[in-house]
Design a protein around this nucleic acid. Sequence first.
DNA 1: CGGGGTGTTCGATGAAAACCATACACTCGC
DNA 2: GCGAGTGTATGGTTTTCATCGAACACCCCG
Lengths: 115, 115
Amino acid sequence: MAQRDRTTGSHRAAPEHTHPDDVPVQTALAALADPVRLTLVRELAGSDDWSRTCGSFDVPVGKAALSHHFAVLRGAGIVEQRDEGPKRVNRLRRDEFEGRFPGLLGLVLRADGQA
Amino acid sequence: MAQRDRTTGSHRAAPEHTHPDDVPVQTALAALADPVRLTLVRELAGSDDWSRTCGSFDVPVGKAALSHHFAVLRGAGIVEQRDEGPKRVNRLRRDEFEGRFPGLLGLVLRADGQA
DNA sequence: CGGGGTGTTCGATGAAAACCATACACTCGC
DNA sequence: GCGAGTGTATGGTTTTCATCGAACACCCCG
């Protein structure tokens, strides 16, 4: 019982996740309406699942703020995290999120850098 | 020149509009990520174009705040306003906005009240 | 078991945004 | 023109949120 995972040996407090289905539209929009988080999502979208650690993103904020942003994205059902040794790797919840908010993800990704 | 409109006789400062095409995704998301504005958009979606005056919406804020919210929606290319006598009537820019952010509007409208 | 690497938590700070009350501007009907 | 009705602008308060620095927790490697 409660035997720890051998492959991803980690018994750190597992990150709390919210399934997209339990996320209000407003929360999802608010989560994506931030430049830093938008960058995270986009960079994540261009990478393989579980291939990026939290610290591997190119954003102009400190560790603390970064950690906070990931918590927000988790709470909005946009990303999933898993502990892998000392690191925490990420995955974009493409399908689940798409099921809840069809088109939204594609919208912010295709997103024309601006204008 | 500059003959005033006869039908909607008004020479008040015309409200400034931003076309959806000139709106950054972030701005659009931020505009919709507010409970009051979301209510405005939804109520507006359930009414005929130009049928609703600013004051005719059921939101728990004062006139000043309301006016501000409409300005934000205008700046995000979501609503269009026109002066009609002493009143200012509204219209949801369905098609134009849909062209710029396909699916987004439908998403916030279908929006399951919550969860 | 000690230390480097990684990420979270805490407390505080600063900026942005929502809000209100008041005062003003404009249109219309009398 | 006055006065009611409608919306905007201004100034100031409150709340919210992004951010940082520092302290802490955890994992691994030697």
